[in-house]
Amino acid sequence: MPDQTTASVEGDLSKAIAGQTQTRLSALFAEQATWVFLAAVICAVGLSLMTDTFATPQNLFNVTRNFAFVGLVALGMTVVIISGGIDLSVGSVVCLSAMVVAIVMNAGYGFWTAAFLALAASALTGFVNGALIAWLRMPSFVVTLGMLSVARSLAMVLSDNRMIFEFGPDEDLLFDLGGGSTFGIAHPVIALVLLGILTSFLLKWTRWGTHVFAIGANERAAVLTGVAVPWVKISVYVFSALMAGITGILEAGWLGGVTTNLGQSMELAVIAAAVIGGANLLGGAGTITGAIVGAALIEIIRNSLILLGISTFWQGAFVGSFIILAVAFDRIRALRSTNL
């Protein structure tokens, strides 16, 4: 994954100037992602010692695959949060995308046609979100809350609320993409790694990425300096919807059947992953590594509840508390730095 520093490429002029800039190690420990990663590792080690079911290849395979879905959607969510917005519609878009794939393949079309249509439908929801937010300046919370309802309802209309479990001639391809593995690594995990690298790269190395951060920190400054703010915002919501769309396709393949409650309240786990990983709900800050590590931590905790025989009803309490705790830590840090 691209590094946070670009020290190696700079000349000696800036090296001299950067004399005071923090070292790599201290920068690493200033990152929330590092601490969350440590927490995840500690949990994993603890679980392997406490139970003999955690560290089995099958369970680890399941854990990584499960967190990959939340992680994939969290990639898009992190970008949205960095830009100062929120996307509550992702869970429903996952469902809509999966449903479009299912229906089109069920009707006898090939996988690629179905996947294209599913991603087009997802991108359209993202475009509508982004256009309302950027052009009509509506709060992202309201717009995407509405889309949460609209997208799931569309999935119900399309499927007549049936479960679809027959996928036509390309069924094997779909099942392999979502449920298969290469070199022992589940395909959704590979997708997460590749798209995670891509997203990090876009954020760090392109003008688009710089503009996303700029808009999240000071939208007015971005407008005044000539950043195409509305287009960047729209692209951010389309990006988020596409990540949800890809996730929907993979989940359809993994589950081998699609129902209209797929991805229900997934947005909560996704937002938790992003925020635990250091994304600031006020905008302007967030990392992809953080989102992935955050998603991993949530899944490990979820898995541990099951393995330790604690009722899964507690999951919601954990995820919710995590969001609140992560934001609380952020507030405390902000208060401390303004009081200096």
């Binding site: 920190a217 000071n218 007015r220 005044l224 000539g226 302007g284």
Partner: peptide, 21 residues
Amino acid sequence: YQDLALCDNLTAAANVFLGRE
């Protein structure tokens, strides 16, 4: 601008070049 129109989360250089990177 009176409030300088800077982005706190970007470096000095990124702010100088904001919009014309």
